[in-house]
Design a protein around this nucleic acid. Sequence first.
DNA 1: GCTATTTTGGAATGATCGGTCAAAAATAAA
DNA 2: TTTATTTTTGACCGATCATTCCAAAATAGC
Lengths: 192, 192
Amino acid sequence: MGRPREFERDAVLDRALELFWQRGFDGTSMADLVEHLGIGRQSLYDTFGDKRAMYLEALDRYHATRASLPWEVLDQHPLRPGLRTLMTSMVDWLLESTHGRSCMLVAAAAERCPADAEVGARFCANTANIERHLRQRLERARAEGDLGRHHDPEALARFLTSTMYGLQLSAKGGLDRAALLQIVDVALSALG
Amino acid sequence: MGRPREFERDAVLDRALELFWQRGFDGTSMADLVEHLGIGRQSLYDTFGDKRAMYLEALDRYHATRASLPWEVLDQHPLRPGLRTLMTSMVDWLLESTHGRSCMLVAAAAERCPADAEVGARFCANTANIERHLRQRLERARAEGDLGRHHDPEALARFLTSTMYGLQLSAKGGLDRAALLQIVDVALSALG
DNA sequence: GCTATTTTGGAATGATCGGTCAAAAATAAA
DNA sequence: TTTATTTTTGACCGATCATTCCAAAATAGC
């Protein structure tokens, strides 16, 4: 019943995500959104609530549809080659995607933390997720003898996660692909 | 000649720095500045130009007066203990300073890059500076036999810089002191 | 004291901010 | 066709934004 809406919610959210990712929360105005989303201002408010709610939804959609690293290569390859492939694909993603912007959740945390706890929570959840994937693979490697008994999978997982974050800022700092891959090499040498 | 100004430029700039550091560029309004700086609006514009110019000056002052790590401990101690002390002091600085904000230049780069090239240039300059300190110490260690000949001081310096950046985001992610120091330990183990 | 020069404080600028209102338009159920 | 319900559209809101204007205030040289 009632007039049918003339847009797809997810398609609009994807466009909003793109804007927020490019320009950040403060850098994106409702006028910008109305202009690029192709729907009216009121429809926007009716559908998403307000600007912050839409931003949080965009973060969730980012997490659900774009933040995925190729974890399967971790499981399908020996520990170190798998990690190198994973980190290399991340470096390439950082360099292509696009004109030097990094993971949206990292950018969001940098811009809105600790002011906005909801943003912080999403950033932490993503961090914990990455750590979990890495830790599980490291535990398996340790059980299978690919990783020395003296290593702590949890500490290593945190270290590798931190390394990924470091790569993002280093890429922003202008390091080229070769330099970033050197960082990956040194980091992986910590696995012994 | 003329009426003397009733404030010290650097003292005002320090207070502006503090506000920009806490709230970011977009998060700080000229009204906020007028309120907290203790000088009139017009004096502010006469002295610093406009908001962005004042922000860039605040970044420069941050770089000059606050961004300094205790590099002397690097020179005065053996390589690994010196690096551990340096990184530990950085972790403690991150945890105290204050309520989860990180290096102002990192925050500035995250908020304003790549939109503002001047901000990016200052971030890169700071990065290069950190790298230089580390590389020089690593070169000395290599010359003195404290570091294996197979290591590349430049690559290691970049890795350690990246690690420091990673620590900042990890701290934002809520990791406690013990976890951050574990990351430092793993990172330093890459020096062999 | 007088004049030139500079700083100061407060009012005002137009633009833009996020958010709302109300009427028109489009559908489904009756 | 009428009625109820929903979406759309565009005008509109007060607040806030960075910035400027201007006259009063305070000094130095004369």
